[in-house]
Design a protein around this nucleic acid. Structure first.
Length: 287
DNA sequence: CCCACGACCTGTGGGC
DNA sequence: TGCCCACAGGTCGTGG
């Protein structure tokens, strides 16, 4: 589910509760998510203070006072819920888009100040790890990851080098986290539409003019989505159970058969399957 | 190295 | 109403 804007929404939601907080009780209700949790996972978190919460691509990174960093990936259905204080369950305080089954509450963390954080993940495609902060950049999940699309290293020329000689289509390569970090199926479709670029083009053949449109489009889409609190199709919720609303601004994703939203374009949005995943695009104005 | 594809896991929505 | 299949926001491992 969550791509960069949703992960950033979760990070911002967790920050007020976690930053500076000491973790006093940690419960792992099963030994694994997608992968086994690291050895002594709960014990290594217990007693630690969270120094800061950052994000890299689709990972949330919690730097700890123990000189370790807690890495969190939400997979497709990972979700955090934050309950604060004794009145946390007061009627009406939280709106749950889809109440999470207790069976999927895998990790529970309580802070010294009485907040409780629960990680739910129905499909268990999410995963967590603990790694020494000093060598975090060498972590296998982070090493080789492409530039942050909202940072200064994401440029048309950089994208051109990443695409050079590649015959794969642009859509598939933009989903590759080594090319650019944080994009997923929705925002790649939306960005390609805004850039008027066909998802079927061979990546290596795209010129700088188009790549400049693409990098701009990616930034615009992601910034708009973060400002809207992410997109909620079925699973995504922020830490208070609320929905994002960027899905109302989708121009192609999920709109197969609808008229192209670009003014004066006579096209109809089509769906095709690339690399086993749906791509939505306008075959008339995306070239 | 590059690329295509199946696998992982559960829930849900649409069609019949 | 009920059943079954297709599909879902991600990533990894394997094979050619």
């Amino acid at each position: 589910m969550p791509e960069l804007p949703e992960v950033e929404t979760v990070r911002r939601g967790l920050a007020p509760t976690l930053e500076g907080a000491r973790l006093v009780r940690v419960e792992a209700r099963r030994p694994d998510l997608r992968f086994p949790l690291p050895p002594q996972f709960a014990a290594r978190l217990t007693g630690a203070r969270v120094l800061g919460l950052t994000r890299r691509g689709k990972y949330i990174l919690a730097a700890l006072s123990t000189d370790e960093t807690w890495l969190i990936h939400l997979g497709m259905t990972g979700r955090f819920e934050v309950l604060r204080g004794v009145n946390a369950r007061a009627p009406g305080e939280f709106v749950h888009v889809a109440p999470q089954a207790a069976a999927h509450a895998h990790i529970v963390v309580e802070t010294e100040s009485g907040a409780r954080l629960t990680y739910f993940d129905a499909r268990r495609f999410g995963f967590m790890d603990l790694a020494a902060t000093a060598t975090l950049a060498e972590h296998p999940r982070l090493v080789g990851m492409g530039p942050e699309p909202l940072g200064p290293d994401f440029t048309p020329k950089g994208l051109q080098s990443a695409f050079a000689g590649r015959r794969q289509n642009v859509k598939a390569l933009l989903l590759d986290q080594r090319v650019v970090a944080g994009l997923g199926n929705i925002y790649v479709c939306e960005a390609l539409f805004r850039a008027r670029l066909s998802p079927r083009r061979a990546a290596g053949g795209v010129g700088l003019t188009r790549l400049a449109r693409l990098t701009d489009a990616i930034r615009e889409v992601l910034e708009g989505a973060i400002a809207a609190g992410g997109s909620t199709l079925r699973d995504f919720a922020d830490v208070a159970g609320g929905a994002g609303y960027f899905q109302h601004r989708f121009e192609v994703y999920g709109r197969e058969g609808e008229a192209c939203t670009r003014s004066a374009c006579p096209g109809v949005v089509r769906r095709l399957v690339q690399g086993g995943r749906s791509t939505f695009f306008c075959p008339v104005c995306q070239t």
